[in-house]
Design a protein around this nucleic acid. Structure first.
Lengths: 162, 1020
DNA sequence: ATCATCTAGCTACACATC
DNA sequence: GATGTGTAGCTAGATGAT
């Protein structure tokens, strides 16, 4: 390899590494909550949607909404506080209903009473872009995947150490 | 009893009525605020007292019960209810307190005590009437009342205890979580707090069950916070640091551990503390991490009066690798403390494990944050550091009378000093040379532990002039060690009289012998030059211990270098004299190191890689789990570094054989670590575009969803991370996912269907994700809007977009036979994005959906989902658009792709929409498809998935997933159907673990060039 | 100055409703 | 079982008490 090519590669690698860093950070961030995969990705999706919807609006509406909210909260609290029980006049038959038992089961299903997993998280293997861009044998050596794209044939993915 | 008391509301003067109104008045006032409760309680006590004196005790009880009953139906969030409950609690507490103090004074005790007892007794029995009420609020309030009574009462009589126990045993399994929480609170009081016996009391046993098995996080929390802390229960409480619920995890740090104060260090063993802190600091949730940081860097450090050394010694710094993180936390959050760190000059003369560790961490921290002043002020010149290092090396190796703890402590100190040396400032040449001397000496002359060798070599590299210099020095050291060992052996042999090591020598004999023959083989095979050492020495070989040492050192060296080997003769000689013989060694530890070393060399040189690939393949094929794992890592790394040029060529390993090894390893559930390694490795290679094979990729996706692998956390997590990264990192990647997604969905849906109906299977039905979840995940992965770094390529190429996936699924809609699955598909179509502008395809989608809506028997949810989808489709895509097909749109039917032998092959152009419609109509009539599509209905296809794929049974049912167009194609070109079948059987065998079927199992690959090329060698 | 207490605002989870 | 609302348990900043 000529020195010129080396130089070019160096520059390219520098640019690449910056792009890679951003992309890697993006993936680490977006995937950190769904590390258990499966089932659990749903929550993230749900959150993403919420974030996307609220992103556009800001500014004036802010004060309006807070005022409205405050009013609403106050009204609700007031409504709640209003509820009082009349301990002098009450329906004497209510006691019957209160203590009435149910025909249907009021208990958990037998199946849900014991759980083998004990509601513990599994081991977290902490997969990250850092981890998967490292060589197995030389963990200090990073590969660059994300922006350093050449046709597969001329592939030389290892670039630099780190 | 109460029923006898009548209420005569007309006679307002009656005592009865007076009592009623007095009590009601208290309740009326007490419900609105907590203020005045003390007074209200005093009033109640007075009423009770007077009523009792005048023979109206039961009247009082009657009305009191009545009042409380009124709040039982109030829902949990109703503050009025809570106030009355508090009132009752206050009354009970006050009465109890009164009785207790009377008891002490010995006056009028009996009477009061009995009255109180009667009151409590009847009251509890009264409200327990509601313990199984149909109203959940009533059950909740009853449990709540019981809990607060238990909180405020000293003791209860045996009968009542039994009654409550009996009632609340059942409430622990109440349908409503809040009721269970209150039940926990109630039982809390029945625990034996100073239980020293072997057995655990009844109440605690129930709490333990709840803490581990209750589905509600809040119930587990209540149990965790209330279970008594005993030797037997402590681990059960602490394991909640890994509870699925974030709050529970956090509370372990903010309450449980915090409240233990300094006693954590006595009551919990070091390992557990280490785990707890590691979990906390590495938790995915920031709030948990923060809680843990606060605990360690504030609570615990403050308990030690800010003395980091004391904290480190409490944490057993030498055996606990959490300490690094702990100090990181302290350095980052306790700048006040960090500022106080001053290293006196004489500290270096009396290092302890803790001090040396702090020095290392402090140095790292200062270096990372470029705190030059602090570095200058606290750390000596390099030459002085080298003297210090030498001093501790001398202490360790010039003294034969060291205890084990002394040895490990000194080694720990040396390791820390070397870590400091690694990042040290060597601008002073004298210092550099001094350090270099010491490191070389140490590596050559002392028997260092592996971690020390590793860090010492890192220092050596920093000190060396360049990489070549570093390699030369290291190889020289390795050679010297070998030679010296051999000389020593010869010397020992010369001394024939000393026979006390006879046994060991005999043991070594065999190994030495086989090692010899292996080296001979190698020399003969490869024609390499003999080691430069004198030929006479070859008769003797190094002892296993020394050999391991050399290999370890060689490994650590190779991990640090990047120069191509052809510029490094010394490494070539290392390969010949050390590494290759080690690979052939019979001792597994040596062989593994040898393979690892050879792998590292392969990364430096493409020729070595190419030549060695066969050997690595053999190791995967024939080795035990740990050798397999190493070899898999090597192979993955080789591909990562050199790409595919190491395979498929003159004298090179066949890539098909390697792929087979990957398939085989991936499906072998007996060796989960290997599965996980190969999964991660393949993901890396796909990410690096080294591998671009659709079939192999599909296998990866299937492995991710396979119920057989659902317990393999490492594998699942690798895929859970890598697959989305792959799909979103490049549009080409995503298109690959698009191409396999339809088939993946179909296969997994069929499998799920089978698992639901066949419950005799060893795999439980819920170990597999439901198809709708799989579908949703696939939709997400194929959403082009989520791809990063989007370029124009995006818009130029309309092939293999998410729409293609949708269309593919809809075209095979009737393959999803179970109604449930159909519904899952239809109710999720609205998750697809409308980014694609291929009008023609959208129209086909519309036509199929309209057909399904009209003709298939689907429920209202599905129907409305279709309607909604069609509406959006009209609005977003088809509105105002004429019949112009804006795309080039070379049809790429999923099924056709599957029947194609190459994944990259593009599809034929002869596809017509009406074919699909005809298919749909055919299916509408619910007539099973005749002919080769479905020879014996669905069950055959299903059984082919669950049964071991027999070599001679080509899974006819599986062909059925090719619909009419595929049928056409299969008829035309029969040769291709064969490859499809072959692929089918291969892929299917991945989905479930393969029953042990002996060596013939490989034949299921059905490929002419099977991987028997990796089977022979070792068997001779 | 240091420590409680209060307040608003946040998020994940739980509940209710259809 | 998807949806919107409600709640628990923080978290941080302000305020007041000692």
């Amino acid at each position: 390899l000529s020195t010129a090519t080396n130089k070019e590669n160096l520059i390219e690698d520098a640019v690449t590494s910056v792009m890679d860093r951003d992309v890697m950070a993006y993936f680490d961030e977006t995937l950190k909550k769904s590390w258990r995969g499966r089932e659990h990705w749903k929550i993230r999706n749900f959150k993403n949607r919420l974030g996307a919807n609220t992103g556009d609006e800001a500014g004036k509406k802010d004060t309006d909404t807070t005022e409205q909210e405050k009013e609403a909260v106050k009204a609700k609290k007031a409504a709640k506080n209003k509820l009082t029980i009349d301990f002098f006049n009450f329906d004497h038959t209510v006691e019957e209903r209160i203590f009435e038992k149910k025909k249907a089961s009021i208990e958990m299903s037998q199946k849900s009473r014991t759980t083998p997993g004990h509601y513990l998280l599994p081991n977290d293997y902490h997969f990250s872009t850092q981890k998967i861009t490292r060589l197995f044998l030389k963990p200090s050596q990073q590969m660059s995947f994300f922006s350093h794209r050449k046709p597969p044939s001329s592939h030389q993915s290892v670039s630099g150490t780190l | 009893m109460s029923e006898n008391v009548s209420i005569d509301s007309d006679n307002s003067d009656s005592t009865n009525s007076k009592i009623f109104r007095a009590i009601a008045d208290v309740f009326q006032n007490a419900q609105s605020t907590y203020a005045g409760h003390r007074r209200h309680i005093a009033v109640l006590k007075r009423i009770q007292s007077k009523a009792t004196e005048t023979g109206y005790e039961e009247v009082f009880n009657y009305w009191f019960n009545k009042m409380v009953t009124l709040i039982l139906p109030l829902k949990r969030t109703e503050i009025v209810g809570d106030r009355i409950v508090r009132l009752v609690a206050g009354l009970v507490a006050s009465l109890d307190h009164e009785v207790e103090s009377l008891k002490e004074k010995q006056e009028d005790f009996d009477g009061k005590e009995k009255i109180f007892s009667r009151f409590v007794n009847q009251f509890i029995r009264h409200i327990l009437r509601g313990v199984e009420s149909r109203e959940k609020n009533v059950r909740y309030r009853v449990a709540q009342l019981l809990a607060v009574i238990m909180d405020n009462i000293g003791e209860i009589d045996e009968d009542l205890y039994k009654l409550i126990m009996w009632s609340f045993e059942k409430r622990l399994f109440d349908k409503e979580a809040p009721v269970r929480v209150q039940a926990i609170f109630c039982l809390t009081k029945f625990q034996d707090e100073d239980n020293t016996s072997e057995t655990i009391d009844e109440a605690s046993t129930k709490l333990i069950h709840a803490i581990q098995n209750d589905p509600s996080a809040e119930v587990r929390r209540a149990a965790m916070l209330n279970l008594v802390s005993l030797d037997k229960t402590r681990n059960i409480i602490m394991e909640r640091a890994r509870d699925v619920n974030t709050v529970n995890r956090r509370i372990v740090y903010t309450r449980v551990l915090k409240n233990m104060g300094a006693s954590v260090f006595q009551e919990l063993d070091g390992d557990l503390i280490g785990k707890l802190i590691t979990w906390g600091l590495e938790d995915r949730e920031e709030s948990v991490r923060n809680a843990c940081v606060r605990l360690v860097a504030f609570e615990w450090l403050n308990l030690m009066d800010g003395d980091i050394i004391r904290l480190l010694s409490k944490l057993n710094v030498t055996s606990n690798n959490v300490c690094e993180k702990v100090l990181d936390a302290i350095f980052n959050y306790r700048e006040d403390t960090v500022a106080k760190i001053k290293l006196p000059v004489n500290v270096w003369d009396s290092l302890t494990a803790e001090i040396s560790f702090l020095i290392k961490a402090f140095h790292t921290h200062c270096t990372q944050n470029k705190l030059e002043d602090i570095l200058d002020g606290n750390f000596p010149e390099a030459s002085r550091l080298s003297e210090i290092l030498q001093k501790y090396l001398d202490l360790r190796f010039s003294n034969n009378n060291l205890s084990n703890t002394d040895v490990s402590c000194l080694e720990f100190i040396i390791e820390q000093l070397l870590s400091v040396a690694f990042k040290y400032d060597y601008s002073d040449e004298v210092g550099r040379r001094a350090m270099l001397m010491i490191i070389r000496n140490a590596l050559a002359n002392y028997s260092l532990t592996a971690p020390i060798v590793r860090i010492a070599l890192q220092v050596l590299k920093v000190l060396s002039i360049n990489e070549r210099d570093f390699i030369a020095m290291t190889v020289e050291i390795i050679t010297d060690i070998r030679d010296e060992d051999i000389e020593k052996q010869e010397a020992e042999e010369a001394n024939q009289d000393s026979r006390f090591k006879q046994d060991e020598d005999e043991d070594d004999e065999a190994a030495v012998q086989s090692f010899h023959s292996a080296v001979d083989d190698l020399v003969n095979n490869k024609n390499t030059t003999a080691p430069s050492a004198a030929p006479a020495v070859q008769e003797k070989e190094v002892s296993p211990h020394t050999l391991l040492g050399c290999l370890t050192m060689s490994q650590f060296m190779l991990e640090l270098i990047n120069l191509p080997i052809d510029e490094n003769v010394m490494i070539s000689s290392l390969i010949d004299t050390l590494i290759t013989p080690a690979v052939r060694n019979t001792q597994s530890e040596v062989r593994e190191l040898g393979v690892r070393n050879l792998g590292l060399c392969s990364l430096l040189d493409v020729n070595i890689a190419t030549e060695s690939l066969y050997l690595f393949g053999m190791c995967v094929s024939k080795g035990d789990a740990s050798l397999k794992t190493i070899a898999l890592k090597v192979i993955a790394d080789i591909f990562s570094v050199h790409g595919t040029k190491v395979v498929d060529g003159e004298g090179k390993v066949d890539s098909i054989s390697l792929h087979k090894i990957f398939y085989k390893t991936l499906k072998n559930c007996e060796l989960p670590e290997c599965q996980a390694t190969v999964a991660e490795g393949l993901c890396k290679l796909f990410l690096g575009d080294v591998f671009v094979d659709d079939d192999l990729f599909e296998t990866l996706v299937l492995s991710y969803f396979s119920p057989a692998n659902s317990q393999n956390e490492a594998l699942v997590q690798a895929f859970a991370f890598c697959l989305p990264v792959y799909c979103f990192s490049h549009i080409r990647h995503q298109k690959r996912m698009v191409r396999v997604a339809g088939d993946v969905l179909l296969r997994l849906s069929v499998l799920w269907d089978e698992l639901q109906t066949n419950d005799d299977s060893s795999i439980s039905p819920d170990s597999m994700l439901k198809p709708n979840v799989i579908f949703q995940e696939l939709i997400e992965w194929t959403d082009s809007g989520k791809v990063v770094n989007q370029t124009e390529e995006h818009f130029e190429d309309e092939e293999d977009t998410q729409l293609h996936f949708l269309l593919g699924v809809l075209r095979i809609y009737y393959k999803f036979e179970r109604k449930e699955v159909k519904k899952m598909i239809l109710t999720n179509i609205n998750r697809f994005s409308f980014q694609d502008r291929s009008i023609r395809k959208w129209k086909e989608v519309r036509d199929i959906l309209e057909d399904i809506s009209e003709n298939d028997d689907i429920d209202s949810a599905s129907r409305s989902s279709i309607a909604k989808f069609l509406r959006s489709l009209e609005e977003d895509i088809l509105s105002g658009d004429a019949d112009v097909d804006t795309t080039k749109d070379g049809t790429s039917d999923m099924g056709e792709r599957l029947s194609a032998s190459s994944s990259e092959e593009r599809m034929s152009e002869d596809e017509k929409p009406e074919v699909t419609l005809a298919v749909s109509n055919e299916e509408n009539s619910n007539v099973p498809i005749a002919g080769i599509d479905k020879p014996s209905g669905s069950s055959d296809a299903l059984s082919s998935v669950l049964l071991p794929p027999e070599p001679d049974r080509m899974l006819p049912g599986d062909v059925s997933r090719l619909r009419s167009k595929k049928r056409k194609r299969a008829d035309i070109s029969g040769s291709e159907s064969n490859s499809d079948q072959e692929k089918s059987s291969r892929l299917v065998s991945f989905v479930l673990p393969e029953p042990q079927r002996g060596p013939s199992s490989d034949s299921s690959f059905g490929n002419p060039v099977d991987d028997s090329s990796f089977e022979d060698e070792n068997d001779n």
